[in-house]
Nucleic acid binder design. Structure first.
Length: 657
DNA sequence: AGCACGCCGACT
DNA sequence: GTCGGCGTGCTC
């Protein structure tokens, strides 16, 4: 027998191995195996088995899974995702079947015969993994076939079978959008879930993150559905992950929560998928297999013919398009209104040089006695993301990649966001030795410094993605004690914090930070923040020179119609898919050679007219980007054929362009 | 991906 | 002279 093995490497072909005699009876598609590759052993995935002579092939050395871990539906889902995101199957399966999935370790074996006493003394049911190694595969198979041994998992204690059994009942795979505020969404989700649980079905819910919205929903859901709520994903311990795995696969009446990888989880009686705040970029996996979990959720709901429910206050533009075209049914249509807001124009230059605008000081000082917090937003973390010498004009740039350096005041170090590396900071210009160093484009640390100077008696804390990472949740005392919170985009997820005043500083900068999705991202951030914080008054401090037009974001339908029209004219998503090819080489010559190869390849496929670029060149690292638009079905084949060129990545509908 | 091989420029 | 960085080819 010959097995086709997909290896988790960026190569768009599979490798054939011969199946050793003793493994022939148990080898199956989607088992993980260990194979010799080069001079090492690597794990891979069986994606096909055929009865053919195996002349001259290397042999599979070991089998990892006794049972294949995905069913027909997930198989279809993986093939769809591999094609859609132009990713080789080995890499797709690496994410769908992560290393930590080891069911055999958590399955217990109960013997109905006496023979196991030959193997051990204890009468306890042993882990299946142990039984496999003690008895050998052949003996285990015959015992299983003759029902002399039955398996159950240690969490649900229910019998384990190879196939994921699901009830059959009439299903309808419709798509819905619930457009409404957080409290209404919660109520809606709870009702839906209760109904499904009572019917003995499982619900999968995707959340944008584990620490903030994940924790918030976990708490609410577990209060209502005690011991029926499980998080599946890399944020929890191995044991909890495996518990969620078995609860989903082997038991009904559960709610499975997760962020990205959970979308590939086999689930028994799965009756609906809910995606909370599907528009969040955190659903996108940003390395290797660049999938977006909410898109995969949509496909999975389609494959399993079950409803997909999106809940949001700021859906993606493509959903708005989908509503107009009847692809989504709108359940509720009530957004938080932007009310009690004031736009104040300030001179940013003066602000940078250290004088806090009088209005800002007054607003922050004028605090009532309530426990409510004043929350201040700025889009940048750290102190300053643009440092230059005022004397000679030298810009502080990364010695490795030449992109602008950020100053971290708390650590007194320079930081390159692209390389994620730290560098020493000296208080003089490396070019002319002048000590006139100017900091521009300030972040949270700068604001903290200014506010502490102006209002020394208030308790101020900083909240950024980093600080949430460190503390793992908001259940830290300092957040509750704080009177003023200065934060970045994370403030749009601070559910349950009472806020009286919400102050935006530099929100207009977001328009130059997020590429073609900038306006959409700003809109979504704004409405999610209002939804989470429900502030009593809102202040926008914007630069008088930038001419920020808040009006544009006030009426959601008008906003979406206008934005959709721009996308249509530019032939961008959701109208056309974009494929971005990135080449990165260490030398100019090698870079140009690779670039030419790609260009020739595109030309040879007759698809040159759909090519745009190279878009830009990053100095020092020699990076180029080529954009292809999706006009021709052959584009996928062309893109897969580029996998034999080294140092390139292919991205479908990239977040940043 | 990650490793072996070969090229070329640097330097005890 | 030979050491190391970098590009290239290739993996059943």
């Amino acid at each position: 027998m010959i097995a086709e093995i997909a290896l988790p490497i960026p190569v768009s072909k599979t490798f054939s191995y011969s199946v050793p005699e003793h493994l022939c009876p148990i080898i199956k598609k989607f088992q993980r195996v260990i194979v010799p590759f080069r001079n090492k052993h690597t794990s891979g995935f069986v994606i096909d088995v055929e009865d053919a002579s195996n002349a001259g092939l290397k042999e599979i050395s070991q089998i990892i899974d006794f049972y294949p871990l995905i069913d027909k539906n997930i198989e279809r889902l993986c093939y769809w995702a591999g094609n859609h995101y132009v990713t080789p199957m080995g890499i797709v399966l690496k994410y769908a079947l992560p290393k930590y999935l080891k069911p055999e370790r958590y399955l217990l074996s109960r013997f109905n015969c006496d023979c196991h006493y030959r193997l051990w003394e204890s009468k306890k049911d042993l882990p299946f993994e142990k039984v496999l190694s003690l008895m050998g595969i052949e003996d285990v198979i015959s015992h299983l076939q003759e029902k002399k041994v039955v398996l159950y998992d240690k969490f649900t204690k229910k019998a384990f079978t190879e196939d994921i059994v699901s009830q059959t009942y009439s299903k309808e795979g419709k798509r819905f959008l619930f457009l409404g505020a957080i409290q209404r969404r919660i109520k809606f989700y709870l009702n839906l879930m209760e109904d499904q649980i009572n019917k003995g079905r499982n619900v999968l819910m995707l959340l944008p993150d584990y620490n903030l919205s994940g924790g918030f929903f976990y708490k609410i859901l577990s209060e209502k559905f005690k011991k029926k709520v499980f998080w599946y994903g890399s944020s929890v311990s191995q044991n909890l992950r495996m518990e969620s795995y078995f609860r989903a696969r082997n038991e009904t009446g559960n709610i499975i929560l997760g962020n990205k990888s959970a979308i590939f989880l086999p689930i028994m009686n799965l009756s609906m998928i809910i995606v909370e705040r599907h528009e969040e970029d955190s659903f996108r996996n940003e390395s290797e297999f660049r999938f977006n979990a909410w898109e995969v959720a949509k496909k999975r709901a389609e494959i399993e013919n079950i409803p997909l429910i999106l809940g949001s206050v700021s859906p993606k533009i493509e959903i708005f398009k989908g509503i107009n075209e009847g692809e989504y049914a709108l359940i509720e249509d009530e957004l938080p209104l932007l009310k009690n807001f004031y736009q104040i124009e300030i001179n940013r230059k003066r602000f940078f040089s250290g004088s806090i605008p009088q209005e800002m000081e007054t607003i922050i000082k004028d605090k009532d006695k309530s426990k409510k917090k004043t929350i201040v937003f700025t889009p940048r973390k750290y102190y300053s993301s643009h440092i230059h010498c005022i004397n000679c004009g030298y810009n502080f740039i990364c010695p490795l990649c030449a992109s602008p350096l950020t100053y971290k005041k708390n650590e007194d170090r320079l930081y390159c966001q692209a390389c994620q590396k730290d560098f020493d900071y000296r208080n003089f210009c490396p070019q002319c030795r002048s000590d006139l160093i100017g900091f521009f484009q300030f972040g949270v640390e700068f604001l903290e410094e200014m506010l502490k100077k102006a209002i020394p008696d208030k308790h101020i804390i900083l909240l950024t993605g980093d600080s949430i990472e460190e503390s793992k949740s908001l259940e830290i005392k300092s957040v509750h004690d704080a009177e003023i919170i200065i934060g970045t985009n994370i403030i749009s997820k601070l559910y349950g914090i009472e806020c009286d005043k919400l102050i935006f500083i530099g929100i207009e900068d977001m328009l130059s930070m997020a590429g073609y999705r900038a306006e959409e991202k700003l809109f979504q951030f704004l409405y999610n923040t209002l939804d989470a914080l429900n502030p009593e008054a809102i202040y926008f401090f914007v630069d008088e020179k930038k001419g920020f037009n808040l009006e544009h974001f006030l009426y959601y339908k008008e906003f979406y119609i206008e934005e959709l029209e721009k996308r249509r004219l530019a032939e961008f998503p959701p109208f056309k898919n974009i494929y971005l090819i990135t080449i990165e080489k260490k030398t100019l010559n090698a870079g140009q050679r690779a670039l030419n190869t790609i260009k020739q390849r595109i030309e040879a496929w007759g698809l040159k007219e759909y090519m745009k670029g190279p878009l830009y060149e990053k100095k020092k690292r020699y990076q180029w980007k080529i954009m292809l638009k999706d006009y021709d079905e052959r584009i996928k084949d062309l893109l897969f054929s580029l996998y034999d060129i080294q140092d390139i990545t292919i991205e479908v509908n990239p977040l940043h362009i």
